[in-house]
């Protein structure tokens, strides 16, 4: 099960970080942010080496005692990060294909969200609809 989804801008600032579950207290929210933030290092490394931009990079190597991180980069260098819990039964058994599907779906949701003409690219995504859709994606699809 995915526990967190993050959208990171091309300047590596967070555009959206959403998590679900009962661990929504500030503490866990923060820990997710630390996690996603450091994962950017690994993501960037992959981006620097791989030529294909739309590559779906696998687990980032750090901090996977409890979490697995999957990254996805759009053509506009927006980074989508999916965090799964490696301790939960469904999370540890997750297949790459499922992750890929979820990330593609997330990409579509993101594209929908920024189609809002009042949204300024580079701003944080505050759309309630997007948040709702992402959370349902986390809950159902993965």
């Amino acid at each position: 099960m995915a526990v967190c989804v993050a959208v990171i801008g091309k300047d590596n600032s967070p555009l959206y970080i959403g998590g679900i579950g009962n661990d929504c207290s500030t503490d866990n929210e923060l820990s997710r942010q630390w996690l996603v933030h450091t994962a950017l290092d690994a993501l960037e490394e992959r981006l620097a080496t791989s030529s294909s931009i739309n590559a779906n990079s696998g687990n980032s190597t750090a901090h996977t005692d409890l979490r697995d991180l999957y990254g996805y980069v759009t053509n506009t260098r927006i980074k989508l990060v999916l965090v799964t819990s490696s301790t939960s039964p469904s999370g540890s058994n997750i297949r790459d294909a499922e992750v890929r599907t979820a990330l593609r779906r997330l990409h579509a949701l993101y594209a929908d969200a920024i189609c809002n003409p009042f949204h300024l690219p580079g701003d944080q995504i505050t759309s309630v609809k997007f948040d709702k859709q992402v959370k349902s994606l986390i809950l159902n699809n993965v």
Partner: peptide, 13 residues
């Protein structure tokens, strides 16, 4: 570095 990259929550923490 957190401030530079716009991670305000982390910066606050």
């Amino acid at each position: 570095s957190y401030e530079e990259q716009g991670w305000m929550d982390l910066a606050a923490q």
